[in-house]
Design a protein around this nucleic acid. Structure first.
Length: 104
DNA sequence: AACCTGACGACGC
DNA sequence: GGCGTCGCCAGGT
């Protein structure tokens, strides 16, 4: 079952992101072994349960910005607050400096 | 099977 | 740096 395996690899990759750092969908996909599966990463995180231990909030897009959900804008503010709580600073336009906070 | 949508990314202008 | 297009994969209608 390649589908389950991909999800498991993605979640495992996200779990490796240390506190105070962020990664991107593309990088997570690459670490998980998916060459061009950035979109798949977002899909996997969207199906994540609330009680999961996966630090989904540390995953942002390649621009260093929190991706816009089609469903629910409140969660974006929550993610923003959680990242600030870990010491991550947002620049103009709520952008994160990936050179400084990016992982790896 | 055809088509559309979605927490994306790379490239070109 | 903004904006449009194409490529990607999974799921639903």
């Amino acid at each position: 079952m390649p589908d389950m395996k991909s999800h498991a690899r993605i979640l495992a990759a996200v779990r490796r992101i240390p506190p105070g750092r962020v990664s991107t969908y593309g990088r997570v996909a690459r670490v998980a072994g998916l060459a061009s599966g950035a979109r798949q990463v977002g899909y996997a995180l969207a199906a994540l349960p609330d009680d999961s231990d996966v630090p989904w909030h540390r995953v942002v897009n390649a621009r260093g910005e929190i991706s816009r959900r089609s469903h629910g804008a409140a969660i974006e503010r929550v993610q923003h607050a959680m990242l600030e709580g870990e010491g991550i600073c947002f620049g103009p336009g709520d952008r994160i400096d990936l050179e400084r906070f990016g992982w790896p």
